[in-house]
Design a protein around this nucleic acid. Structure first.
Lengths: 301, 301
DNA sequence: AACTCGATTTGTCCAGGACAAAACAAACAA
DNA sequence: TTGTTTGTTTTGTCCTGGACAAATCGAGTT
């Protein structure tokens, strides 16, 4: 028994690939091929875990496992993201400014990044900051992550520091009873919170009362919370990384559990390919969010 | 196919009980007994999911599944937490003050809670606020949650609002190169962040440089991050809810992956019952944390 | 009260089979 | 060329039922 080896539960935790998938790949593709410990249980060496993480990253970028597993490791490293819609922005000046910010993260210069972002916030105002700085930065980080330009811990650092800035900015806005009451959260297994914070900022600016419940609320609890807080709207966020196949069923279940008079709005990168579901409003962009709020106020409920 | 029914993956997500456990309980204890859909797959009605969540909560409070499942639902609701060490505090005045704060959460009065906490922060200073307000509040919320006094969404609201206050307070502290460099994070599946924020506040007050990476870092990434940031110390947090059985192996693996000269400190409610592991420092209380930092500065590394 | 040592409880892992939904590719129509 | 339909392949999830080890309990002993 080697302390550096991982059992199947640890690999599931670290890679996000389920035990079923790990065993299935082994049966079908012949990778990974873990060693076995004294009890005959799988025992993955760190190299295989690392390769699995790489494969998972490329899968999230649109590649297919069958191909990836057949590809030698050396070639995997250079694969480009394979997406249908390239998301790059138009303005080259703005893009290079954003790249400068991200290079501070790459250099792990916490203080400089914070200061630069504070400056942008002061210059652009909260709405501009959210729409022209935080949103494109987040997309860019996602793309860098898919390309392997960003390490996981660099993405985490970016997220953590940016979260703090946004929360701080939101905290300065007036609170108290406003209209409508919007409950913001995400479902279990969905931990990305930046998207929620961005719409919270926009909604709060427009004078809505936001009730932030953090991430990972069980469905039945979301429904209870909506009732307890007398929410007019429940807003959920799904990131691109969230298993797409589960989303429609999830939304259907939540819609069924919520009172009819509570609106259900859904946003985030994970819902782009989603078909329309009756009784649910899809917010693909941040502009959609402010537009939806305006429409709600106009009486369309 | 009923939209209100949950498949086994959804139940796992919402209850935290693994598919294996759900099937095993069905086989052994005869509960839950889900319906079957057209494909012969398990299909859990909401009542059973609700009961499972209740059982899970009582298990986290120290009860055993065999007994709980045999108990009628009506009796389950009134079961008291069954812990070896009662954690209640001494000072009755302080305790009633804290209860007042929590009653604001119970009343879902976001603004009043924020204001009251801001006042305490101003009065006690950051260190006192962390040690005498946030820490006992968090324990109390944990206890209320175990008793069923707090709903899940109320706990989430508390966590979210308190996180914001702490982050805001930490943000006002001076940043920049200091000594030692402490990397703060948690392992995958461990999403509780309040504990990390509390020690971050204390460490930052003592003049350490904190690198907050948020939660849920894969083990191998923690090791990379420590190297990239030239960290002196890696500090991890485990909540009481984290599966105890996995912790020793996890720590052993992380210790093996980290460079020898990087210290590994572990804290949080989840490590109380943990045996000592060589090369790892256990921080059971917040006082231990400041003491550990002083000792480190004294040259004990 | 503290400890040892069987007995019981409980969670995790394993193998291998089945199937449906998603992704793809090819043929066809506009 | 572009868009739509249809068949085929890929892929993930679920199923059953068995085995085992670690944690916990409880009775007896020091």
């Amino acid at each position: 028994m080697n302390a550096t080896h991982f059992n199947i539960a640890a690999v599931e935790r670290d890679t996000g690939l389920s035990k079923d998938v790990l065993r299935m790949w082994e049966r079908r593709y012949g990778f990974p091929v873990p060693e076995r410990d004294a009890n005959g249980e799988r025992c993955y060496p760190p190299e295989q875990v690392e390769r699995l993480r790489l494969i998972k990253r490329l899968m999230d970028a649109g590649h297919r496992p069958g191909k990836l597993i057949a590809t030698p490791v050396a070639e995997l490293a250079v694969l480009a993201p394979r997406r249908k819609e390239p998301i790059r922005s138009a303005d080259p000046v703005a893009a290079s400014e954003l790249d400068e910010l991200l290079s501070l993260i790459k250099r792990h210069d916490v203080a400089a990044y914070q200061q630069a972002m504070q400056q942008r916030l002061a210059r652009q105002g909260l709405q501009g900051f959210v729409q022209d700085t935080v949103a494109p930065l987040t997309s860019q980080v996602g793309e860098y992550w898919e390309r392997g330009t960003f390490e996981v811990f660099e993405e985490h650092l970016f997220t953590e520091l940016t979260k703090r800035l946004l929360r701080q900015a939101v905290a300065t806005l007036p609170t108290g009873p406003r209209d409508p009451r919007i409950l913001l959260t995400s479902v279990p297994d969905e931990q990305h919170v930046l998207g929620l914070l961005m719409v919270e900022a926009l909604f709060a600016l427009e004078g809505a009362e936001c009730i932030p419940l953090g991430t990972q609320m069980p469905l039945l609890e979301i429904s209870r919370a909506a009732t307890a807080h007398r929410a007019d709207i429940v807003a959920l966020s799904f990131s691109v990384a969230f298993p797409q196949r589960q989303i429609p069923m999830l939304l259907q279940q939540l819609r069924a559990a919520l009172p009819d008079e509570v609106a259900l709005w859904v946003g985030g990168g994970g819902i782009r390919r989603l078909a329309d579901v009756p009784g649910i409003k899809r917010l693909v962009t941040l502009e959609d969010a402010t537009a939806a709020l305006a429409a709600w106020r106009g009486g369309e409920r």
